[in-house]
Design a protein around this nucleic acid. Structure first.
Length: 534
RNA sequence: GGUCCCAUCGUCUAGCGGUUAGGACAUCGGAUUCUCAUUCCGGUAACACGGGUUCGAUUCCCGUUGGGACUGCCA
């Protein structure tokens, strides 16, 4: 084994082209220079950020994914940059069919438009093998990576040994058996039919510290990583996350990498990778995770797929939450000044608000449904009646059940129903939270869904008296004066008369304005429902 | 075990050495209203703890505690 001294480090000698081709399964398609030319730096104005949302297609879009994607999108769009969608489908074992559609659908539903310029594609990592292998070949050629023939069994043994001895686990230093493997040995393994992984020949020294930058946390010091991490997996020849991140974010010319804080511990490795290639690392932004308040215990805990349906973004669509308010809620978490700006009228919506990367919170935020409800109420409260109707109808037709579809079939009637208490902008009802719940509140307007209240003790005399003088053409004052007169005649409160009518008409003790309800229901329906309880 | 991150009302946060520690949601009380909702007024409520540095710490440093992440041929 020849050891070369390069920059003070012991380096491996590189592999020959023939051997590289055998190790990788094929000769590399590109040289580094060719890749640089194929994916040139982007011609973008100063300050333009290039970001990407890079989910692995699990068939499930987590609210945390949406949160991260929103940051990516905002950063790119407000700076005149580019926002990409890259599918990290390097784990063939976990592949789920249709999973990419789930992601794309969510992106489009929540208004996150991405711009995947073909020039920098493909955007599926599974289709970028040539690129990864070409970079890996270069590393193999220069002794900065090596083929490793350790089997799963070997790895398990090493780990057990390390655990027993109290060492950190991993393939590093003396535990990296094949670190200094010779060409002859490689050939022997290859002839034996073994397929290697490609590992980094790490020159990191844990005794030294490396300082990495995070845009919100500042400089963070770590011990250098001496882990010979896997670059290319043996089972499918695809890269690991680390290597794909290095290669893709360099050649896609990503300027800002937004990812969950679970990536913080691998930051030094990524720094070392970029440094080794003499590439400029992107600006990193590690976001805190979204937790939630447990409804039963009132305690804080992480969002879980099993316990929290709302951790799946599809939940918000199915339940008919206004997507804009979900984005406003999320947006206000990542840019806390937004709420105040909106309340002051400085901006109309989150898309207009300029967020500051440095202000992204670094401590975990709790998902607060109550606050989301408030955003939703505010949002719906500010809608015009026709927009409200449109949203409700669209939702019902896509996600609604038969009852809900029936409710939106007659749009004139629905419009009249939803227009109640919306004429005065200062006093708009704010009990609508979701499209689904909105239709639920209004069920009593529909004869097919109306449930008469048989528990309530109606004052039949009062109701009869009302029927005698009832005229649908009365204006509101006339109508009310009649009610006052009836109350006086029977010695009850005005409110009691109103309540008898309210329950007879709606089956409920709480409704919006009674006069409006009667106007919308129409003469016949009013008379019929009152008579029904007499 | 090792490494790293985090810590202001119940929740999300503002604050960047001197503030009556501000706002929003929630909550409580009052006013208005035919109920509910709305709207308007008002209240309760926080700097995790211990050391420093300083004339002065919520703010800077160290430690403790608590919470979290990572320690895979998963991302």
């Amino acid at each position: 084994m020849h050891i070369l001294k390069i920059q003070g480090f012991d380096m491996r000698t590189g592999l020959t082209e023939d051997l590289i081709a055998r190790v990788l399964g094929a000769a590399p398609k590109y040289t580094l220079a060719e890749l640089e030319a194929k994916f040139p730096p982007r011609a973008l104005p100063d300050g333009a950020m290039v970001t990407r949302f890079a989910p692995s297609p699990t068939g499930f879009m987590h609210i945390g994914n949406l949160y991260g994607a929103l940051i990516d999108y905002k950063l790119a769009s407000q700076s005149g940059g580019v926002f990409m969608l890259r599918i990290e489908d390097t784990d063939t074992k976990r592949e789920v069919s249709g999973a990419v559609d789930v992601v794309k659908r969510a992106m489009s539903d929540f208004g996150l438009k991405y711009n995947n310029d073909e020039k920098y594609g493909p955007y599926y990592q599974s289709q970028r093998k040539d690129i990864y292998h070409s970079v890996a070949a270069e590393l193999l050629r220069t002794g900065r990576a090596y083929p490793c023939f350790l089997t799963a069994n070997d790895l398990e043994k090493i780990r057990a040994e390390q655990t027993a001895a109290g060492f950190g686990t991993g393939v590093y230093g003396e535990f990296a058996r094949d670190r200094d493997i010779t060409s002859d040995e490689i050939i022997r393994h290859l002839d034996n039919g073994e397929v290697p992984t490609i590992r980094l020949y790490s020159t990191g020294d844990p005794g030294k510290r490396i300082f990495c930058k995070d845009a919100v946390r500042g400089s963070i010091g770590f011990p250098e990583s001496n882990e010979d991490l896997v670059l290319i997996k043996s089972n499918d020849g695809l890269p690991t996350y680390h290597f794909a991140h290095l290669v893709d974010d360099h050649f896609m010319r990503t300027t800002h990498v937004v990812r969950g804080e679970e990536w913080l511990p691998s930051l030094p490795m990524h720094y070392q990778l970029f440094r080794m290639m003499e590439w400029t690392p992107p600006v990193y932004i590690h976001t805190a995770t979204l937790d939630k308040i447990d409804a039963e215990t009132g305690k804080q805990r992480k969002m879980s797929k099993r316990k929290d349906p709302e951790c799946n973004v599809a939940f918000f669509l199915q339940e008919g939450w206004p997507v804009e308010s979900v984005m406003e809620y999320l947006g206000n978490i990542l840019a806390s000044g937004y709420e105040e700006a909106k309340l002051k009228g400085a901006v109309k919506n989150f898309w207009e608000y300029e967020m500051k990367p440095k202000k992204i919170p670094m401590s975990g935020a709790l998902f607060d449904m109550k606050k989301l409800e408030w955003w939703a109420k505010e949002y719906i409260g500010a809608m015009t009646v026709s927009d409200l109707v449109k949203s409700v109808v669209t939702w019902a037709n896509e996600y609604g059940d038969e009852k809900q579809k029936m409710q939106v079939a007659n749009q004139d009637y629905l419009t009249a129903v939803l227009a109640i208490e919306r004429d005065n902008p200062r006093r708009i009802r704010k009990d609508f939270i979701t499209w689904k719940q909105t239709l639920g509140i209004e069920e009593f307007f529909f004869d097919e869904l109306f449930v008469p209240n048989t528990e309530y003790k109606y004052n039949a005399d009062v109701l009869r008296a009302f029927l005698e003088t009832f005229d649908i053409a009365d204006d509101k004052d006339t109508w009310w004066n009649k009610i006052v007169a009836i109350a006086e005649k029977f010695g009850v409160k005005n409110g009691d008369v109103a309540m008898d009518l309210r329950v007879a008409l709606s089956g409920r003790t709480n409704t919006p304005d009674l006069y409006s309800i009667m106007q919308v229901m129409g003469k016949d329906r009013v008379i019929k429902r009152i008579k029904a309880v007499l």
